[in-house]
Design a protein around this nucleic acid. Sequence first.
DNA 1: AATATAGGGTGTATTAATTACCCTATATAA
DNA 2: TTATATAGGGTAATTAATACACCCTATATT
Lengths: 246, 246
Amino acid sequence: METNLSRPESVFAIDCVILGFDEGELKTLLVKRSEEPFKGYWTLPGCLVVDRYESIDDAAAHVLYSLTGLEGIYMEQFYTYADVDRHADGRVVSVAYYAMVRLGSARESQLIASYTRNAAWVSVLGISGFAFDHTMLFEKVLKKVRRKVLYHPIAFELLPEKFTLTQLQNLYEVILNKKLDKRNFRKKVLHYQILKDLNEKQKDVSYRAAKLFKFDREKYTMMFESENLSYQPSPPIRQAQGMEKG
Amino acid sequence: METNLSRPESVFAIDCVILGFDEGELKTLLVKRSEEPFKGYWTLPGCLVVDRYESIDDAAAHVLYSLTGLEGIYMEQFYTYADVDRHADGRVVSVAYYAMVRLGSARESQLIASYTRNAAWVSVLGISGFAFDHTMLFEKVLKKVRRKVLYHPIAFELLPEKFTLTQLQNLYEVILNKKLDKRNFRKKVLHYQILKDLNEKQKDVSYRAAKLFKFDREKYTMMFESENLSYQPSPPIRQAQGMEKG
DNA sequence: AATATAGGGTGTATTAATTACCCTATATAA
DNA sequence: TTATATAGGGTAATTAATACACCCTATATT
């Protein structure tokens, strides 16, 4: 029912949870506030959307680009927060996104100069001191990602192009915050047939080199699409199960 | 990053997909547009949110109330659409919700008088002629609900308090648009132990009366919460499976 | 009272997925 | 050569999912 638009303009905000996998930890990119209110607290990176010609997806991508210099990043809209008391100065409608970033080894260089003073990659375990309602927002995203990783290959967005099964398992363990059994993990993940064996090995490791794999996106997409033709089977209530106990 | 609020006001819209189960069909409540553009097309019920003191959840609840007179309905935020070209008069930011309504037998009376001319419960199969981008929006909600029903007991929101297993199965069949096996369905659904056997039977049916059940919400909540303590087991990619083929 | 109708209610065998559990092979560094 | 650190693989037990068909019972009709 979008009619009689007295004021078609909109002023609202983007908040973005940016996740990365680095040094065996799941991290998120946060910005330290330099102003009141909440001076010195962490905030999720974000911006106000003032240009009425900018799409919110573009605005979110811009937040990411301005902080990291990265483009074409995996990003998804999460939820819209619009409680009237979120901000002291009046209602701020925030559309929250989450993004998954492939961190290079020189990750610090990916923080654009003018921001580096205030921005940092922080381990997701035990962050405190968020401004506004960002604690709640961040926790909800984390919960969503922990669930989504169970039925969607978003984890690969956090790994380098080529990776070993052990690296993949470590990532799942870090995201889910639990140990997994090695053989069962491998059996299952290879069974899906969405990994391409590159017939290459790690180099420059001081132990037995492991095989390298690549996520086969085309194959995954094909399987996913053919699944959709005949609609998914269906346990009425049950959660997805599996991959339990190392 | 919500600072320097030059214009803290926001003008945006709510669109709401309202689902109900009636006469063995899944239906949605639609409104026929009486004005250009898209005169005579179906639209999702909705409203503009102009009051800066109204939360969007309240606004969505209000849309529902004004159409049906119902309160306390199950309702969930779905997605925010903000493409700049959604509406001819400028950008309209729409926060989409979906709601699940328990339709009484006298469902017509639940359409508030002034609206009944323009509003109707329409079977979700094969609706066409939506205004704006509401076709896409509606289809995405339906897909979401079809998926969500597999791991969350939202279906019970569509049934009367007391229901038979056959009614429950019919509902699942209608939502998923596929036949399910009676014995397997019963086995599974009773196995979850979230139905309370009321030790009552149907009355006024011209065939053998079936037992009545009730969704045990407290028990479900308990189970769900205890699951969350030790985080869910986890097939990395796989979709939930089950309940296939009658 | 016999019969037709409409749906209620159940059990078992097969297959697939999940879990638990440990040892050997290989590369490197000392 | 040896110590060490990680790669990599198989099997049995359990649990969950699937496929499948018949008898029961309340009511309405004759």
